[in-house]
Every structure is written in structure tokens, then in C-alpha cells.
Design a protein around this nucleic acid. Structure first.
Lengths: 201, 201
DNA sequence: TGTACATCAGTGAACGCGCGTTCACTGATGTAC
DNA sequence: TGTACATCAGTGAACGCGCGTTCACTGATGTAC
């Protein structure tokens, strides 16, 4: 019996993923094309069809890999986050990832591809579970952890895209980090004004 | 002297914008192509070049129009927002706009086009000024209004994209509205837990 | 008022491009006897 | 161990597509005298 995928090329499936990654790193505004991936992998334009049903399947795989890398990047930043401060650090890491890998980030989120791909769904829900975990640890008294987790993810995700799309200045890493940090913390230090303005909500 | 743009076609510049809008409304996942716009406007493929330097210029104009519409949509939702509750309503309107006009929203934010276009810059800063205004009114005691405004915008923007990209369920308008509402408010009702967890921040 | 001219919005053919996907194929690898 | 066969990864030509942009042009409109 063959070692999985060790026929002619070696392992074209993995090689395609690697090639796709390289292309995305090299051109931050690139779209991902099957042909370009094949070219980069040193293989005919149609070879990838032996491993991916169509372009969408490749994109989904690349995206799934991106989610895993993002998750890893976040846990590296703070292995056991448990305070608002840790949360801010993780938020910064998220935005940093987006800015350091813009094309990949767009493939992960902006590329319209099969939203039911198992790999993608699993990878995405891993991220939201991760965020939920941090929020639970950082704010143990919270009633609706799910709502708060969504808020946090959305806040950070929005910061990532606003920077990525040039709506917020991202010329230096420090400026970005400061903004992310202060944005995250600003929401958490609002309390006095809020409680006065909306006592019944 | 001619009435501005009233030569052969009437006003092709405006007709192109209208055509672009129609195309974006009809196909929510459409990219915007010069040729498709020309076709829809009933004009040869090259006619738009009399009015736009290139594709990017058209896209910038369309995006600018989108920003203006978004702003209008928000002020219609709450003409004089001044409470956290108003803020939640405006947030919901923002996300609703994104979901009702997905292709337009992507052109406005995800389409890589000239970020220095005067029209675009003006329209974008109008939005951020608007958000800042609400935040100032809703939370008069806030120290760093800019940071808080950025947070609010990012939160809402992130919610818009996470829904748009299928990371959050958007099957019914009510579900979306509830989630946006509770996400926005969750951040504002966090205070007790936060202050306990991060007294020195 | 009428004519000659300049302007310039819109045309249509053509360019070269990269794309996703199909198809019949080839040739290396693995398998049965 | 050796041979015949089946499998299947990768090939290469071809399809039809839509795109952005160029160019020399045409013909309607506006202007000067």
C-alpha cells in the first residue's frame, strides 16, 4: 500500500497548500488562482484537480490552515490569558496577524467560498471557542459569556479590517498596538458614564 | 455652454454610477467590472473612459456614494442619537446596511482601490466623525472620546463582516438585531466584573 | 442668420491577459498470480 | 522471481470566458465670425 500521497510528485496536496501560502505571502493583495498555485508547485495547470474538486476546495483548505495558524499565533502571544490585560495582548496579536498576512486573512474571511466546508467550520468554531475561553477566564462574573465573546471577537475583527482597509492608520506596529490596546480597554473602563446614562438597561 | 454632461448620452457619469449600483444590488457577490457597467448603461465598453481615468476611479466613486448612503441610513435610524440605546439602534442599522447591500459594502471596504481618492477620504471621515458625535453625546463623561469611538466603530464593523462572511448566523433580521444589540450593550454592562479583575488598569 | 470650424462624447475593432475546467492521454507505481 | 494487468497521479492541448485598456475613428454639439 502506498504511503499517503507519495506517488509521482511526492505529496502534491501539501505542495499546493505550501505554494498557495507562498503566493499569499509574496503578494499581499493577491487573489488565489488554481493556475498560479499549480505553476508555483511546478506542476501542470490541471494536476491539482487530482486533489481538489475545484478552486473552492483549495481555497477552503488554505483558509482552514490560516485559521489554525491564527489560533497558534494567539496562544503563542499569551498561552494562558486570564486578565483584561492578557485579552488586550491577544487582541493585538490578532490584528498583527491580519496586517502581517493580509492576503491570507482576506482568504480566511473575505473570500466567498464554501461556508459548509467541514475543515473551515471546525477551524472557525475553534477560534470562537478560544475567545469564549479567554472571556470566561478574564471575566468570571459575566452573565452572558457568549454575547460578550461575540462582542470581543467582533471588536478585534473590526479593528483588523479597518486597519487592513486603510481606514485606520497602520504605518507603525506601535501605533496599531496602542490603538488596539486602548480600544479594547476603553470599552472596559467606560463603566461610570454608562451606568449613569443607561441605568435601566 | 453645455449643461454639465448633457451631450450625447445625457449624463454618462451618473448613468455609470447608477448602473454600478444596480449590478451590485442584483448580484450580492459580484465584483465590479468596467465592462459590465458600460453594458448595463447601454454604452460601448470604452465610453466610461471619457468620465473615469480607469476602473479604480469608478470603484472609488461608487464606494464614496456608498459611504454617503450608509451615513444617511444611520441618521434615518436615529436622527439625534444620545443614549446607549440609540447607539445600539444605530449599530443595528449599520449591520443591516451591510447585510442588505453586501456587494456595495464590500466595494466600500474590501475592494482595494485608491485609498487617497478625495471623495473616499471625505466620505470615510464623515462616518468616523458621525460615530464620534454619537459617542460624545451618549457618554459625555468619557475621557478619551476618540479611542472609544474607534472601539465602537470597530465593534460594529466587525459584527457586520462576521455576519457577512457567515461566521455569525444571519438567517433572520431579528436574530441579527438581537445579537448586535446585546453585543453592544454587553460591553457596556460589564463594569462590575471588569473593575474587580483589573483595578489598576 | 448661415457657414466653417473646433471640440469632445461615444464607437468598435483589436491587443494580450489569466482564468477555471474538460478531455483523452501517458507513464509510473503497485498488485495478483 | 517474473510477467500481465489495473490503478491512478500528472500531462498538455483545447474550450470559452470576461476582463482592462489602446487606438484611430465618427458624428453630434457648441462656437466664432
Amino acid at each position: 500500500m502506498p504511503q499517503a500521497g507519495a506517488y509521482h510528485h511526492g505529496d502534491l496536496r501539501a505542495a499546493c497548500l505550501r505554494a498557495a501560502r507562498e503566493l499569499l505571502e509574496e503578494d499581499g493583495s493577491a487573489g488565489l488562482s488554481l493556475r498560479a498555485v499549480a505553476r508555483r508547485a511546478g506542476v501542470s495547470a490541471t494536476a491539482p484537480y487530482r486533489h481538489y474538486a475545484d478552486r473552492g476546495a483549495l481555497v477552503s483548505s488554505v483558509a482552514a490552515e490560516g485559521y489554525r495558524e491564527l489560533a497558534e499565533h494567539l496562544t503563542t502571544a499569551r498561552p494562558a490569558p486570564s486578565t483584561p490585560d492578557d485579552l488586550a495582548a491577544v487582541a493585538t496579536a490578532y490584528v498583527r496577524f491580519a496586517l502581517d498576512h493580509p492576503a491570507m486573512f482576506r482568504v480566511m474571511f473575505a473570500e466567498p467560498c464554501d461556508p459548509t466546508s467541514e475543515e473551515r467550520v471546525a477551524a472557525t468554531s475553534a477560534i470562537s471557542a478560544y475567545v469564549r475561553g479567554i472571556v470566561r477566564d478574564a471575566f468570571p462574573g459575566t452573565e452572558d459569556t457568549d454575547a460578550l465573546s461575540t462582542s470581543v471577537w467582533a471588536l478585534v475583527h473590526g479593528l483588523a479590517f479597518l486597519h487592513l482597509d486603510g481606514k485606520l492608520d497602520s504605518s507603525t506596529p506601535e501605533a496599531v498596538a496602542d490603538r488596539v490596546r486602548s480600544s479594547v480597554l476603553a470599552l472596559f473602563t467606560l463603566s461610570p458614564a454608562i451606568r449613569k446614562a443607561a441605568p435601566s438597561d
